[in-house]
């Protein structure tokens, strides 16, 4: 009897936890989704209605004209796409390699300099030179202003990602490194052939952070690239469109249009959808690897 009682209690409690979980997650997901619906519906609305009534959940006066504007002269946005994709892909790969190497080395208990180096890296989050000195250094002395490299390099890694990686690597049992050593493999060989495959969940996590860092970048671009490059990274391009009515005109230059015909509100939103959309559609595919990477994780020891 008593045992049955606990069992009922247990299922009750478990059920309650489940119900709460489902409700909260569902609600939160909806809140996350809402602004997207607003943007998409705005991009499909007619300009006049939007200017008067603002955004709504459903498009007001369904039209595709804003998208037609975006794609009538797609050179700039396509160029931005290419730049951003290249930066994201290469930045993530190179960044991941360096971060994982460092993270692995820093958690090796037989590495005498691990604390010194860890502190050396962590210190940079505590004490930074600030905007103006950093800017002067990078543009005047490294001469990187106007080069995509200025943005690419600065986003390559962060102390936070290295320490995160270090902690993931900690959970890989030291015996694996030992067994490699017994086989006579060097540290680098051990890292590449034994450790790296076991770090999959960590690589997925850190890689996603890196990739998003590149994808969402606009601020460094505004400081270091300005108008000096032919194609601005996507989010910086979007920043210009959203903040400056003239940039919008620039984006459709080459199209025969008198400005007052230009659907500026809806065009902004359509540009936003086009600039954000594809990476979102990509996510479910990444997620498949991402989630399985995490759950398959060889962290069980």
């Amino acid at each position: 009897m008593a045992q049955q009682g606990t069992k009922i209690k247990r299922t009750k409690s478990t059920k309650a936890v489940k119900i709460v979980s489902y409700t909260v997650i569902a609600l939160f997901s909806l809140i996350c989704l809402l602004p997207f619906i607003l943007i998409i519906s705005a991009s499909l609305s007619t300009e006049g209605v939007i200017a008067k009534e603002g955004f709504g959940i459903l498009p007001k006066g369904l039209t595709l004209s804003a998208y037609m504007w975006v794609f009538r002269y797609p050179k700039m946005i396509i160029g931005s796409y290419v730049v951003t994709i290249l930066m994201t892909v290469f930045g993530t790969i190179v960044g991941l390699l360096i971060i994982s190497m460092t993270g692995y080395a820093l958690q090796r208990k037989d590495f005498p300099f691990r604390n010194a180096i860890s502190f050396f890296i962590y210190f940079t989050t505590l004490f930074s030179a600030g905007m103006a000195p950093t800017f002067i250094w990078i543009s005047r002395y490294l001469n990187l202003r106007g080069s995509y490299l200025a943005v690419f390099l600065q986003l390559l890694m962060s102390p936070w990602l290295i320490i995160l990686m270090k902690n993931f690597a900690k959970s890989v049992p030291f015996e694996i490194t030992e067994s490699g050593k017994i086989d006579g493999a060097g540290d680098f060989k051990i890292f590449i052939s034994l450790i790296l495959p076991m770090l999959k969940p960590a690589l997925a996590t850190v890689g996603l952070f890196l990739a998003l860092g590149y994808w969402n970048e606009w601020y460094l671009s505004s400081l270091y690239l300005g108008s000096q490059v032919d194609f601005k990274p996507l989010q910086y391009y979007l920043y210009g469109i959203i903040n400056e009515a003239n940039a919008l005109k620039g984006s459709v230059a080459g199209v025969n249009v008198t400005f007052s015909d230009l659907p500026s509100n809806t065009l902004k939103m359509a540009t936003a959808v086009v600039a954000t959309g594809p990476i979102i559609f990509l996510y479910p595919f990444v997620q498949k690897y991402f989630i399985s990477g995490i759950t398959v994780g060889a962290v069980k020891g």
Binding site: L212, T276, Q287
Partner: peptide, 20 residues
């Protein structure tokens, strides 16, 4: 899967767009 995707969505939006 669906909820995780949705929860992740906001991070794909840059702050630029959040302001707008």
């Amino acid at each position: 899967k669906v909820s995780q995707t949705l929860m992740f969505l906001p991070y794909f939006i840059s702050v630029v767009l959040i302001g707008a």
